[in-house]
């Protein structure tokens, strides 16, 4: 059976010479690979941000994709603000920007410089709890506590906005904060207590 060996010498010479030539151009191959990768996969874009949180100024180097929520939790270690859905549906990440309640998961950190951010860590006066924090404790406004920082930030704004004339109004203006434990009645009581 001679047939099986017909092309073996040519194949051997072809493949060995190809491999040998590759060995001589490692740098150009590597450069080509990097160029292709940079073209296909965009590199990280970072920038320096000066952000004021709870009246303290932080300067942070952050990716442009960073949300305010991730900046607070990952860069500033202010983990009181919670990540629930990360898509603006649950309200767990509620903070105040310039005194107004917003969702930090849908806020890009790059849009925050020049504004004042208040988180749950900035509510209390030293050891003295904010009246809303105290009211949540007294009215059983939580069970597991995960949604609580967002609920309290929203509740403080709800009172400031003056939407506390009835239980229906409080529920309507607290509808952006979900509680899986169902502590809603306690939350409404706490808000009524602070409003009065």
């Amino acid at each position: 059976m001679k047939k099986a060996h017909t092309h073996s010498r040519r194949l051997f010479l072809q493949t060995s010479s190809m491999l040998a030539s590759l060995a001589f151009i490692p740098r150009s191959v590597k450069a080509f690979y990097l160029e292709t990768r940079n073209f296909l996969v965009a590199s990280k874009k970072t920038g320096s941000l000066a952000v004021s949180v709870n009246k303290k100024l932080y300067t942070v180097e952050a990716d442009t994709r960073t949300t305010l929520l991730d900046l607070l939790r990952e860069n500033l270690q202010l983990t009181g603000t919670k990540k629930g859905c990360d898509h603006g549906q649950c309200g767990a990440c509620t903070v105040h920007i310039d005194g107004k309640r917003v969702l930090s998961c849908l806020t890009l950190a790059a849009m925050v410089p020049g504004k004042e951010v208040t988180t749950i860590e900035g509510l209390s006066d030293g050891e003295h709890l904010h009246p809303m924090q105290q009211a949540f404790i007294e009215c059983d406004g939580f069970q597991c506590g995960y949604c609580t920082p967002g609920q309290i930030m929203s509740a403080v704004a709800c009172v400031q906005e003056g939407h506390t004339h009835s239980v229906t109004e409080i529920k309507e203006f607290m509808s952006g904060n979900l509680c899986r434990c169902g502590a809603y009645n306690g939350i409404v009581e706490a808000i009524q207590k602070v409003a009065s």
């Binding site: 917003v102 969702l103 709800c158 509808s175």
Partner: peptide, 9 residues
Amino acid sequence: GASPQIRNM
């Protein structure tokens, strides 16, 4: 529409 937080944004 939406929630107070989203309307603020």
